[in-house]
Design a protein around this nucleic acid. Structure first.
Lengths: 340, 340
DNA sequence: TCAAAAGTGTTATCCTTACACCCATGT
DNA sequence: ACATGGGTGTAAGGATAACACTTTTGA
């Protein structure tokens, strides 16, 4: 039971490394893949750090990932979590079937914008940079209210697409395209936007030919009108991986204390709120957030305070690490067990 | 950027196929892997259906999976979902490093105990069978109250393990072993059992050498006393994959209408409740469950009823498929967005 | 008539949401 | 004094959990 029937398979590990940089969630990008073999990828789209998994060198996948991120960028990863394994044939640019089939295992990784550094030289590899999530997904940032790009560009272009080929519904889907758009983007009138559906939204835009990647991959005809491509594109299917990472992190926020991986050791409650808002992409109610945090027992005061914030000095807090051991986490619905 | 440095890599797709069989959640097992090459795997432990991913034959991973499950067992899969990719070196029995390194992509799949069949012959491959989840994880079934095996065998054996090598805490863990046990198995006194932590529990038992797999893999010394191995074991790391599948399904139940993939087209509310209880592994409060289901708008009456249940005839319901388009799903915590 | 299972109604409690207000600092 | 951001209290509404009770069938 070796590697199927004769086509070789290679595994790439790809990391969506997130930190908070200047109040916004940012993703670690490298200018171009480590080994720029052929110059097929034209416009040097930013890429996620990535490298081959070599079982002989690395005992576990996670160690491999930590290893080459540290090599390539100098960042030490804290929390990491496997996202998804992408391996569909032709999921990006068509390649001759003689080439090895590449699968990629995507990871979400969290770190802090400290340590890192280590300049941009070191064995000639490209340099790295932080880029805001929202330069790739401008429609995902609702912190200043509903993003204008939605009604100006995204939704009209999607409506065009729906109208254009209304009857070419691909079979075997439980939802129609209209339903999928409604589901992913909500109803502009009422507030039915779900910030976790990042991937569904990206995939619809991809299918509609509204992303550079779709056109580049030859997977969709470009839209007829001079519609602009939406958001900054990335190499290969890295923007899809980033979308998956954002979705996962936004979901995880609500039932695991992962934000603290992005925070310094001590922080103010407002700082914590800003971090959560940055990730969730929307504003939260101040007073309730504070109550929520403290009767969840997630933090404890350090005793000191900081005046760096402007008005009244803010008390500093730290994460109570052993909360993880104490509390079942949070969880939800489904009701209590019952005796009879 | 081919397949790393010279060791070849193979990808196995492994499916944890679940259906409800006689009121219990069951997993589809095959007697032994399709190609029994060497007889290294001694005692013919049951295995999950699995097969190599061949990108040339299958356009997507999911199609490959559906294909060979249907070939091997005749079952058509409904809902499927990728679980995790396992690829750590030596995650099961030690192999010579000349052999190809096998990675396996685990999937959760749901189906109904109908269609299937197709006998056990067909090209000489082993036959398939349904086996209750709880024969592999007896401690996970709380439907008849707290399982006796917990206090009789599981917890004492874990305490032994903790006491035996208290100071060999592996480094780089945020929680100590004691904390991990407390977290995974809860406090026997109060009800801190979280039915979703199936994987954490299995992994602890594995580390403690209380599963056949751990001993077989040479990853843990067998426990000194004549402690029984806990639960029925499986081939390779298939029981780990099953644990992952159960955990995922138990979690998903609470925010996506997945149970209906396991139900026939029409069912009674009690039938639905029984199904949920089977998966969640615990009893639910009848009246509240009914209210929950109906003001979630998940089902609608078909108009007919059945007397097959014993007492008063029960109304039959069907799943309202378009609920998926209507309602954001359920979701939770984190509070509402706010204007100011 | 009784057992068994379906199905309805009501209440106490807790959590979430929203609003109003006070406190401590710099300019 | 006042602007700015930090911090506390409380009341209304909704959802959950728990309990009691009625209805419809078969034996």
């Amino acid at each position: 039971m070796a590697s199927g029937s004769n086509q070789t398979i290679g595994i790439d590990l790809t990391a969506a490394v997130t930190a908070l940089v200047g109040g916004s969630p940012a993703i670690l990008t490298v200018g171009q893949r480590a080994k720029p073999n052929k110059s097929t990828d034209k416009n040097n789209a930013p890429a996620l750090p990535s490298g081959p998994f070599t079982p002989l060198k690395h005992r576990t996948i996670e160690l491999g990932l930590r290893g080459f991120v540290e090599e390539q960028t100098g960042f030490t990863l804290g929390y990491i979590e496997q996202l998804y394994t992408f391996g569909d044939r032709g999921r990006h640019a068509t390649v001759p079937s003689s080439a090895p089939h590449m699968m990629s295992v995507g990871y979400l990784a969290l770190t802090r914008d400290e340590g890192g550094r280590q300049a941009s030289d070191k064995n000639g590899a490209g340099s790295w940079a932080w880029q805001s999530w929202y330069s790739f997904f401008p429609w995902e940032d609702w912190r200043a209210g509903r993003p204008a790009i939605l009604d100006r560009a995204v939704l009209p272009a999607l409506q065009d697409w729906l109208a254009r080929d209304r009857d070419v519904e691909p079979p075997g889907r439980s939802l129609t395209r209209d339903q999928r758009v409604a589901f992913a983007f909500g109803d502009p009138g009422s507030q039915t936007w779900d910030e976790e559906r990042v991937l569904e939204r990206y995939e619809l835009l991809y299918e509609a030919g509204l992303t550079d990647e779709a056109v580049r991959d030859g997977r969709a005809a470009p839209p007829p009108s001079a519609a602009t491509m939406l958001g900054q594109s990335m190499a290969l299917d890295h923007r899809r991986i980033l979308a998956t990472a954002i979705a996962r992190l936004r979901g995880k926020l609500k039932y695991r204390p992962v934000v603290f991986e992005l925070m310094p050791n001590s922080f103010t409650l407002t700082g914590l709120q800003t971090a959560v808002e940055a990730v969730a992409g929307r504003r939260l109610h101040k007073q309730n957030f504070r109550r929520l945090v403290d009767n969840a027992g997630l933090v404890e005061p350090t005793g000191s305070a900081t005046q760096a914030t402007g008005g009244r000095p803010a008390a500093l807090y730290r994460f109570r690490r052993n909360i993880i051991a104490e509390r079942p986490a949070a969880g939800l619905r489904l009701g209590q067990p019952v005796v009879r």
